[in-house]
Each structure stands twice: as C-alpha cells, then as structure tokens.
Lab assay of single mutants.
Amino acid sequence: EDYYQILGVPRNASQKEIKKAYYQLAKKYHPDTNKDDPKAKEKFSQLAEAYEVLSDEVKRKQYDA
C-alpha cells in the first residue's frame, strides 16, 4: 500500500504536512482510544510505518525511487 495514501498527503508533501497528518491520524486510530475496533491497531501500525519512512529524508528518497 502507498505510504502517501495511508497518511493522506500528496507525494510532494512537506515534512511539516507529513508530521501533521501523522499526528492527526495517530490520535484518531490509537489503540487506546479504539479498544473495541480490532482494525485500529493494524491501521495505527501502518501509519507508524508510513511515517517512519516518509519522515526520514533518506528513507523517503529510497521509497520514492
């Protein structure tokens, strides 16, 4: 799945936009606030993985290549 789609940001998003999108979605899908939703944990880990790659310039360049 596309990391940009997961975070809901365009491919040319700035680091600030990526961070903002991640924090909004992380708050929304955090397992502690969605105890009754088994998919929230999965969504949250996808968000974390996408953010880890896109927030790191080197990893992001490799991902975009």
Rank of each mutant, 00 (worst) to 15 (best):
N34P: 06
V9K: 01
I18K: 00
A48F: 14
D37G: 03
Y3A: 03
D64G: 03
S14V: 05
K39T: 15
N12Y: 10
A48I: 13
P31N: 13
K28N: 08
Q62V: 09
I6A: 06
A40G: 05
D56E: 03
K27I: 15
K16T: 11
K43I: 10
A40M: 11
K27L: 14
K43R: 09
Y51G: 03
S14F: 04
S55L: 05
R11M: 09
R11N: 08
R11A: 07
K28V: 10
R60C: 02
Y51K: 02
Q46C: 06
K16D: 10
L25K: 07
K35N: 12
K19H: 14
N12S: 11
E49G: 08
K43H: 09
P10I: 08
D37V: 03
Y51M: 05
K27G: 09
N34S: 09
D36H: 10
K59W: 05
Q15V: 13
Y4A: 01
N12A: 11
K28W: 06
V58W: 12
K41I: 12
A40L: 13
Q5E: 10
K39N: 13
R60G: 01
N34K: 04
E49W: 07
K61T: 08
D64I: 02
L47N: 02
I6Q: 05
S14D: 09
L54K: 00
S14H: 09
S14K: 08
R60V: 01
S45V: 12
Y23F: 14
D37N: 08
Q46N: 09
Q15G: 07
D32P: 05
P38V: 09
N34M: 14
I6E: 03
I6Y: 05
N34F: 14
D37I: 04
Q5Y: 11
P10V: 08
Y3S: 01
K43Y: 11
Y22I: 01
K28L: 13
R11L: 06
E17M: 09
L47E: 02
K19L: 14
S14M: 07
K41G: 09
E57V: 12
N34H: 11
S45N: 09
Q15R: 09
K61E: 13
K41W: 15
V58Q: 13
Y29K: 04
A21N: 07
K35M: 09
D64K: 01
D32C: 08
P38G: 06
D36Y: 15
G8E: 10
P38Q: 09
K43A: 08
V9D: 00
K27M: 14
D32Y: 03
E49F: 06
K20V: 14
E52G: 13
K27P: 06
Y51P: 00
L25P: 01
D64S: 02
Y63F: 05
P31H: 09
I18R: 00
Y4M: 00
T33V: 13
Y4I: 00
P31F: 06
P38I: 09
Q5P: 01
V9N: 00
N12Q: 14
Y29V: 05
I18V: 05
Q5F: 12
D32R: 03
Q15N: 15
K39M: 13
Q62L: 14
L54G: 00
K59F: 04
Q15C: 07
P38H: 07
K19E: 15
Y3V: 03
N12C: 10
K43G: 04
S55Y: 07
L25F: 05
V58N: 14
Q24D: 14
V53K: 02
Y3E: 00
Y23T: 13
E1S: 11
R60D: 02
F44A: 06
N12M: 08
L47T: 05
Y4W: 02
A13T: 04
D64H: 03
V58I: 11
S14L: 13
I6P: 00
Y29D: 03
P10Y: 07
A13R: 00
R11D: 04
A65I: 15
Y29T: 04
T33F: 15
K20C: 08
N12K: 11
E52T: 10
K35F: 09
S14G: 07
A13D: 00
